[in-house]
Amino acid sequence: MRFTVIGGTGLIGSQLVGTLRTAGHEVLPVSLSTGVDLLTGEGLDGALEGADTVVNVTNSPTFDQDSPAFFRTTMGNLLAAGDRAGVRHQVILSIVGVDQVPQLDYYRAKTLQEELLRQGPTPYSIVRATQFFEFMEPTMSWTSDERTVRLPATRIQPIATADVVAALADVATAPPLDGILDVAGPDVFTLDELGRRTLAARKDDRTVVTDPSAGLFAAVTGDELIAGPGARLAPTHYADWLATPR
């Protein structure tokens, strides 16, 4: 099969490109750095020519009120170019619980992206993942100083990006779902607990303070970010991931 991976040079995209190529597929990774601009449509027609499946793992450059406009424009351009090229399957990466947290601008934007895909001309699949292990460090940096890290007790079910990539590859190489697959890590934590475990593993002597108003995830007060009973549970545990040199 021939794939075009939009955002193919990023954290998820570069791993997905490698996974698909190892499986024997022809893969074209595209991004701004390769001359493809989703916002203007520049380079899209050439990038999608001959592609069977397009996997879109791009991110908005901001997580604020500007993000809905980004996804509206980029999905419109991508779906139109895919239709012109005869693409048979469009896949996007989204977030578990994305439609249950309307108070977050970015989650509203991702919900819009999903809706545009569903309404588009091409059979589709949506892979919703929980929060990545790799994002724990930047999440802590938003609300930290030299002595403390402030985190809410939001319940999350984090996942390794390698496991997200495996799920994306399986979905992309199969017939379109015309629906959603949730993927999640094997364990549920509160965010403050996960912060303590992370600092201990890093031998970082800062203290985690439970603060219900701290950071992006303070807006989530229930189990919206926890995967439901039909989710695909990944094999990698956070403790094992922390202990693995990178």
Rank of each mutant, 00 (worst) to 15 (best):
Y106K: 03
A69N: 01
M75N: 01
L44C: 14
V57Y: 12
T74P: 02
I95S: 13
L117T: 05
A81P: 14
P123R: 13
P138E: 07
T139K: 13
T62M: 04
L116C: 07
E134Y: 13
E137Y: 12
L116F: 08
K110F: 13
N56R: 04
T74N: 00
L117E: 01
R108V: 07
R88V: 14
R88Y: 15
V127Q: 05
G46C: 15
N56S: 07
A80K: 08
T139E: 10
P121S: 12
L79K: 10
F135H: 11
A81R: 02
N59W: 15
S141T: 06
P102Y: 12
E49K: 14
M140G: 02
D66S: 07
Q100K: 08
S141I: 10
T111S: 14
R108M: 05
T53M: 06
G43V: 07
D64W: 10
L93S: 00
F133I: 03
R84T: 09
A80H: 14
E49T: 09
F71Y: 13
Y124L: 06
I95P: 04
D99E: 10
T74F: 01
G120Y: 08
G86L: 07
E115K: 14
N77I: 00
G50R: 09
D83G: 12
T53D: 08
R72I: 01
Q131Y: 03
A80E: 13
A85N: 08
R118Q: 07
I92E: 02
A69F: 02
G76T: 03
G97R: 00
I126G: 03
V101M: 11
G86P: 03
M75I: 02
Y107N: 09
Q131A: 00
Q131E: 05
